[in-house]
Write a protein that binds this DNA or RNA. Structure first.
Length: 109
DNA sequence: TAACTGACCGCCG
DNA sequence: ACGGCGGCCAGTT
């Protein structure tokens, strides 16, 4: 595995189950760099170079699709989420606490 | 080489 | 309860 922070982010994001979402801060904390949530978002920016990175499943802590503007068509992010069964209204994920996926707990099986 | 930015989060006023 | 600001890591200019 790569020691790069980016590569690490890609792996976690790729592990996000369908119909689930995660926040930047949680991913950053999972990587051990709590507080470097911005870095996670930056990694997502480079995620465009990665073919299998469901960046649409990554949102901020309030469940708001802040990174939608970085998708090819901005609506693509909301569309993909709705396709997976996630209800999104006005770029805001509904039942965010339910669809939220915490790597720190679900992976610790 | 040094400084700023960036798909954020948490704290302080 | 709401608003503003600093901090985090790495890449880009």
């Amino acid at each position: 595995m790569e020691d790069s922070f980016f590569q690490n982010v890609y792996e976690v994001v790729r592990l996000i189950p369908k119909g689930r979402v995660c926040s930047y801060g949680v991913i950053a904390a999972y990587l051990g760099s709590k507080g470097s949530a911005r870095m996670v978002g930056w990694a997502m920016n480079a995620a465009h170079t990665q073919p299998d990175i469901p960046a649409h499943r990554v949102v901020n802590r309030v469940g708001l699709l802040t990174g939608r503007h970085h998708f090819d068509p901005p609506q693509r992010m909301q569309m993909l989420l709705e396709e997976e069964g996630i209800q999104v209204i006005d770029h805001q994920i509904q039942n965010f606490d339910i669809v939220f996926w915490n790597p720190n707990e679900e992976i610790s099986v």
